[in-house]
Lab assay of single mutants.
Amino acid sequence: VSFKITLTSDPRLPYKVLSVPESTPFTAVLKFAAEEFKVPAATSAIITNDGIGINPAQTAGNVFLKHGSELRII
């Protein structure tokens, strides 16, 4: 599955597209996205474009099915 993750704390709204296997734990996606944007993973969260928080204790495939591919990291 592929996710387009936007960094909301930067006024330029940079984004990265990450492709991972469906079975990947979403905690790993969060950690990798945080490292890519050089923000601390421990204090970061991934939310939907509607501002709904995503529980990272599920697979990337589940997140994709529930929330789609466009996400934000805060």
Rank of each mutant, 00 (worst) to 15 (best):
L71C: 02
V29C: 03
G61H: 13
A33L: 04
R72I: 04
K31N: 14
Q58R: 09
D10E: 10
E70C: 10
N49H: 08
K16I: 09
H67G: 02
S9L: 12
I52K: 14
K38I: 05
Q58N: 12
N62R: 10
T43H: 11
E70H: 08
R72V: 06
N49W: 07
G53Q: 15
A34L: 10
E35M: 10
L30Y: 13
G53H: 02
P40T: 05
A45L: 04
I52L: 09
V20M: 13
V17K: 09
A57K: 12
N55I: 07
A45M: 12
A41Y: 06
V29L: 08
G51R: 03
L71D: 01
T48F: 00
T43R: 07
G68A: 08
Y15C: 09
S2M: 05
L71A: 02
H67R: 04
T6S: 09
V39N: 03
L7C: 14
L13P: 04
L13R: 10
F3Y: 02
I73H: 15
E35I: 06
F64H: 05
Q58D: 13
F3T: 01
A33E: 00
N62W: 07
A60G: 03
E35Q: 10
V39R: 07
F64G: 03
A57I: 10
L13S: 13
V29T: 02
P21T: 13
K31M: 09
K66I: 09
F37M: 03
P56C: 14
T43E: 15
K38R: 13
A28F: 11
P40I: 03
K31F: 06
E36N: 04
T59N: 12
L7N: 13
I47W: 08
T48Y: 02
P11F: 02
T8L: 03
N55F: 08
A42P: 02
G51S: 04
L30T: 15
S2W: 03
R12S: 12
K66P: 01
I52G: 10
P56K: 11
I54G: 00
V20P: 00
I54K: 00
S9G: 15
G53F: 08
I54C: 02
A42F: 02
G61S: 09
D10N: 09
V17T: 02
I52N: 12
V63R: 02
S23R: 10
T8A: 04
T8S: 14
E36S: 12
N55W: 07
I54S: 02
A45T: 09
D50H: 07
A42K: 10
N55V: 06
Y15F: 04
V63G: 02
S19V: 13
A28W: 08
I52Q: 13
F3L: 03
T48A: 15
T48K: 05
R72C: 13
P40C: 09
E70Y: 04
D50T: 08
L13F: 12
A28Q: 09
E35Y: 08
G61I: 11
T48C: 08
N49S: 07
A33I: 06
V20A: 05
A28P: 01
T43G: 13
E70A: 11
D50Y: 04
F26G: 07
S69V: 10
T48N: 13
T8M: 04
A33Y: 05
L7V: 04
Q58T: 05
F37G: 00
F64D: 03
A42H: 05
I47S: 15
Q58C: 09
N49L: 04
Q58G: 06
T6K: 05
P21M: 13
H67N: 06
V39C: 06
S19D: 09
F3P: 00
S2I: 06
E36I: 06
H67D: 03
N55E: 08
P25Y: 13
K4M: 05
S2R: 08
N55T: 05
K38M: 11
D10F: 04
T6N: 05
T6Q: 06
R72D: 06
I73D: 01
L30R: 14
D50N: 08
P11L: 06
G51I: 00
F26L: 12
T43D: 15
G53S: 14
L30Q: 15
T8Y: 10
L71P: 01
E36D: 07
F26S: 07
F3C: 01
I73S: 01
L7R: 13
I74P: 04
G53C: 09
K31H: 13
V29S: 00
S23T: 10
A34Y: 15
E35W: 04
D10W: 03
V63A: 13
N49K: 14
E36P: 00
A28G: 12
E70P: 04
L7P: 07
V17H: 06
G51D: 11
E35K: 08
D10G: 06
F37P: 02
P25I: 11
I47C: 15
N62I: 07
D50C: 07
P25N: 14
K16Q: 11
A60F: 00
A41N: 02
I74K: 15
A28H: 15
S44N: 03
T6G: 12
I52C: 11
V20F: 15
A41W: 04
L18T: 10
E36L: 06
G51T: 01
A60V: 06
L13V: 11
V29Q: 00
L71I: 00
S2H: 05
L71R: 01
T6C: 06
N49G: 08
S69P: 11
S44T: 08
P21Y: 11
N55Q: 11
N49E: 07
N55Y: 10
V20E: 00
P11A: 10
E36H: 09
A60C: 13
A28N: 15
S19W: 02
F64I: 06
F32A: 15
T59M: 11
S19I: 05
A60L: 02
T59A: 06
A41T: 06
F37Y: 04
I74L: 04
P14K: 08
N55A: 14
V63T: 05
K38W: 03
I47H: 15
S69C: 06
S44Y: 06
A45H: 13
I47K: 14
F64N: 05
P14I: 10
V63P: 00
A41D: 04
I47Q: 15
I46R: 01
G53R: 15
V1A: 14
L71T: 01
L71N: 01
K16E: 08
G68L: 00
P14L: 08
A33R: 00
A34C: 15
A41H: 07
P40E: 12
P40S: 09
I46E: 02
G61V: 09
L7W: 08
I5M: 11
D50V: 03
E35V: 08
V39K: 05
L65D: 12
E70S: 11
D50S: 10
T43F: 05
L30S: 15
G61F: 10
F3W: 01
I73E: 04
T48D: 14
G51Q: 05
T6L: 04
V39D: 02
N55L: 11
